[in-house]
């Protein structure tokens, strides 16, 4: 809309040009900042409110939309921590094990596949590469039934294996693609030099390429961390024994078990479950932004 207003400039008939009738730049910028800050607050308000509410007595959650704490109440946290069959720390540990396994799996398997796609020539490479890209868009729901049947026949239900083993097999094609893009950007002369020195592909990969692709590995690590930590669908399907629950599955059972009775402790554990994501975001922001900008992943 502003552009229309701007274009209606009083026609200068006198000859000594009066200033164009527009809002001065500093004022416009201030307005823009004000709007953006208000929007940012509106967007983050629910999350901040949840954090604040988790520190209030449960009864107050339904009465105080404000963000100011009158008193500091840690009881929700101690209540929530012990509300389920195991202390919440147990679920945090389970999630941490799954996340760690997935990170290692992705780093090893995706970087190997990426090296082959970026640097080696082989039969029907285009076909394989196209297939790999195609699997990026494959919904997990399409493969979950046969996968479940296979893992259940192997006796892997209620273990972490169905969550970790696929990552060891480079099935997160996103990261293969991200790493391929990165390796393509590295100068080929480095490989050639190593080859002249007598290095084979495993050596070039380990000694030349891997050390140079640390930023791509960092991006992969952070995204794997956040996605696996948040992942609910496959953890819900494969982990049905409360002993094996990860954080999202535990939180969900918490919700269904205690509806409307203890929002305070539920909020408290929700905050606990979001904390690692938030920390990963703070630490890895640079890589996250780079990662989505180059591959468009979420």
């Amino acid at each position: 809309m502003t552009d229309l207003k701007e274009r209606v400039v009083p026609i200068d008939t006198t000859g000594d040009a009066p200033p164009r009738w527009t809002v001065p730049q500093p004022v416009r910028d201030a307005g823009k900042h004000l709007g953006l800050v208000v929007l940012a607050i509106v967007m983050l308000y629910p999350v901040i409110w949840m954090v604040v509410s988790s520190l209030r007595p449960s009864s107050e959650i339904f009465r105080s939309p404000g963000l100011v704490l009158d008193s500091f109440e840690a009881r929700n946290y101690s209540d929530g921590w012990d509300a389920l069959s195991s202390p919440f720390g147990h679920f945090l540990t389970n999630s941490a094990i799954v996340v760690l396994g997935c990170i290692i799996g992705n780093l090893v398997s995706c970087s190997m596949a990426a090296y082959a796609f970026a640097r080696l020539e082989f039969t029907a490479k285009k076909l394989w590469f196209g297939l790999m890209l195609g699997t990026i868009m494959l919904p997990i729901h399409v493969i979950i039934v046969p996968q479940y049947i296979m893992f259940s026949n192997l006796g892997w239900v209620n273990t972490f294996l169905p969550l970790i083993v696929p990552k060891l097999l480079a099935t997160d094609a996103f990261f293969v693609f991200l790493m391929v893009q990165f390796i393509r950007g590295l100068p080929k002369e480095l490989d050639e030099a190593a080859r002249i020195d007598g290095a084979g592909h495993p050596r070039i990969f380990l000694r030349v390429i891997l050390p140079l692709m640390l930023p791509a590995l960092a991006t992969t690590t952070i995204f794997t961390f956040i996605w696996t930590w948040n992942d609910f669908f496959s953890q819900l399907i494969y982990l049905t024994d409360p002993e094996m629950y990860t954080v999202p599955v535990a939180l969900r059972s918490f919700v269904d078990a205690t509806v409307a009775t203890s929002w305070g402790s539920m909020f408290a554990m929700s905050v606990v479950s979001l904390l690692p994501i938030f920390l990963a975001f703070l630490i890895g922001q640079r890589y996250l932004v780079k990662g989505i900008a180059t591959t468009g992943i979420k």
Partner: peptide
């Protein structure tokens, strides 16, 4: 072509394709 090296590097991915994605 480096078919042999490529096969080794792609082995995990290939197993994943057969067992975890395209196969299912």
């Amino acid at each position: 072509r480096d078919n042999k090296a490529a096969f080794l590097f792609l082995l995990p991915w290939f197993a994943g394709l057969v067992l975890i994605t395209a196969g299912p």
